[in-house]
Every structure is written in C-alpha cells, then in structure tokens.
Amino acid sequence: MTTTSNNINSSITIEKIIESTQIVVSKYINRSVIPRREKEDVTMAIVEKFIHQKSKIDRSFEGKSKITTYYIAILNRMCCEVIRKESKHWYAVIEAEESYNQEKSTLAIETEKHTVIKCEVDRLLNTLTLLNNEKAKTILFLKYYFKIPIHNTELKEYCKEKTSEFSEILNQNNDLSKAELYENLAYLTNEIERKNIKGDAIRMWLNKQIDTIIERLNMHGSSFYNRESLAILIEHKDVISSNK
C-alpha cells in the first residue's frame, strides 16, 4: 500500500487535480445544476477538501482501478455533496441571471449540438448497461412501447434463435393501443422466457424500468428527462449509432 501511495504522490500533481475538478464541476454547470458564477468557488471548495483528505484518500486506494478514475469518483462525490448543501442558496438568486444563461446555453447547444446529444446518448447507454441481463430486453421493450423502429440486432439479442418469428409482430405496432402493446410484449416474454405472465405485469415492469432510467439520468438534478424526452433520446441513440 505504501508503494501505491508513493506512486500516487509522484504521478498526480495538484494542477491535475484542479483540472479534473474543473471538468467534474463543468459537467454539472452544463446541466444547469451549478450556476456558472459558482464555478470557481465550487471548484476551490472541492480541491481544498480533497487536499485536506488526500492522505486518507490515498490510503484507502487498493489499486483495483486507475488512480485517475478513483480521484474522479471522489471528486464527483464531493461535488454532489456541495450541490446538496449549497443548491438552496444558489436557487435563491438563480432567477436573476436566468435570461442570460438561457441565451448563452441556446447558443452553446446550437454550436455543440452533436457533442451534447452524443454525450447524453452515452449516458443512456451506460445507464442501460447497468441493468445487466435486462439491458437487451429493456431496449427492445422501450422501443416497442415508444414505437421506434427496432433493429434486427436488438431483436436478436433478446429473441436469439426465435428472431425471425417475432420480427414481423414487433415491427407492426403503429396502430396498437397501449393495452395491446403490453399484451404483445407479454406474449413475447412468455415465449422467450417460458413464463406465464399477463400484459399488466409487463406494464408494471416497463414502468419501473422507465422510472429507474429517468431517475438515474436525472440524479442530482443533472438533467430533467421525462418519458417524452427519454423517447427522443432513444431515437437519437440510433442516429448516433448509424453515424459511427
């Protein structure tokens, strides 16, 4: 452990910690969680706290991940802590500069639109990855529910050898009611997973999955997704993938 700590001390400079903190804070500023005017103060508060606890932080490091990623995880946690404590004070005066921010953010989004969307799609994909075994099923069911065209690869990931059997059913969902959609998905689940569930169970499961994804994407006020914007993001996922 001593050797690891020594390596840490020699390889990570204070400048690099400040730089990493700025990137972490910028993430929350770009999502309007932290007001732009607070950037310097929040960055310095985090850096100060980090330096104060550095020896303890280094001692806790077991070398299971890269030290830079470990520091980012700590800086991110510290940043979330600052947001929790200070957000009330920030929101008290945030309205005054709202018009300025709106003007600026619109401009910024226009110029960096593609980057921002790609970034959000990456977040969505990472969030879906954490659903583990249910990732493929969730993507497929969400697309069917939001009536977004389903790719054969997505179908194959869940249906495996029964892909061709369900391909036609799943791509004809435009005129169906919500109840019919859930019933079809229940039929699919029963066939693939050899279960005996009804449409209502699928409705509850899918609602839970949607809420989980939205909650994770919106955590710490980092964004303000709802069902509609989540559907748009899922559509963009295909656009980004096809551009790659």
Binding site: N76, C80, C119, R123, E215, M219
Partner: peptide
C-alpha cells in the same frame, strides 16, 4: 439508482 448514476457520471467524465 444513486450508485448507478454515480457510475454513469464517472464513466462519462473519465472517458
């Protein structure tokens, strides 16, 4: 959800 969103955020920042 809390840890998941943290992982997603750290993955994004570190990349």
């Amino acid at each position: 959800n809390e840890c998941a969103s943290e992982v997603v955020m750290v993955a994004e920042i570190s990349s």
